[in-house]
């Protein structure tokens, strides 16, 4: 009798755990979605915003965000950056040569045309990396875990940290809310 009850409890426990596992999206999916948000530009004010995504998946994204903040931009993202910037430069130069209805002043058009591929790549790579890191730190500010808050506070007071200002801004925004 006792064995039967024990057996039933084990079976029920197994199914409950399984339901829990199925109900939670896989961590790899969450990581991929998070990367989409961190490596691109997002929209604020409608559904599907970065803030909503992080808050909805807080448990799953917390370790990933903390790791990104500590380790910096993931290597696979850096690897893609070079190809992306080269393509963007080629696209822009092609458009500049083919079309004329951009509305830009002659002076500004010249500045664009004169920007070399090297200068463009350097500028865009920095833009993407900064975007990634600042967005990750912003994500950190949305997390409630002690580890996340401690890390944010540490960066905000470290004057030598390249993204100290982003952490400071995030804290100011948090206080306002």
């Amino acid at each position: 009798m006792r064995f039967s009850i024990f057996f039933i409890m084990i079976v029920c426990g197994f199914f409950l755990c399984r339901t829990e596992i199925i109900a939670q999206p896989l961590n790899s999916d969450i990581r991929a979605q998070l990367l989409d948000y961190l490596t691109g530009s997002c929209e604020e004010g409608e559904e599907d915003s970065f803030v909503e995504f992080v808050q909805k998946n807080e448990q799953a994204v917390t370790p990933v965000i903390i790791k990104f903040v500590q380790d910096g931009v993931p290597k696979d993202f850096i690897k893609n950056l070079e190809a992306t910037t080269l393509r963007l430069y080629a696209d822009r130069q092609k458009l500049l040569n083919e079309k004329s209805n951009f509305g830009l002043s002659e002076e500004n058009l010249e500045i664009l045309k004169k920007e070399s591929q090297e200068a463009f790549t350097k500028r865009m790579t920095k833009d993407f990396r900064d975007g990634f890191m600042k967005q990750t730190i912003f994500g950190l500010s949305l997390l409630r875990s002690k580890d996340a808050q401690d890390l944010l506070n540490k960066i905000s007071t470290d004057k030598n940290h390249p993204y100290q200002r982003s952490a400071e801004n995030a804290l100011i925004l948090l206080k306002k809310q």
Binding site: S41, C42, E43, V51, K134, Q135, A170, L173
Partner: peptide, 28 residues
């Protein structure tokens, strides 16, 4: 930043007033 994020943009109220964070994508 826009709402705390440097990669966020917003056309406020679908109007002709658009704000962009400093790392907002040029193509976006």
């Amino acid at each position: 930043t826009v709402s705390g994020s440097s990669t966020t943009g917003r056309a406020v109220g679908f109007s002709n007033f658009i704000v962009l964070g400093e790392n907002f994508g040029d193509i976006a």
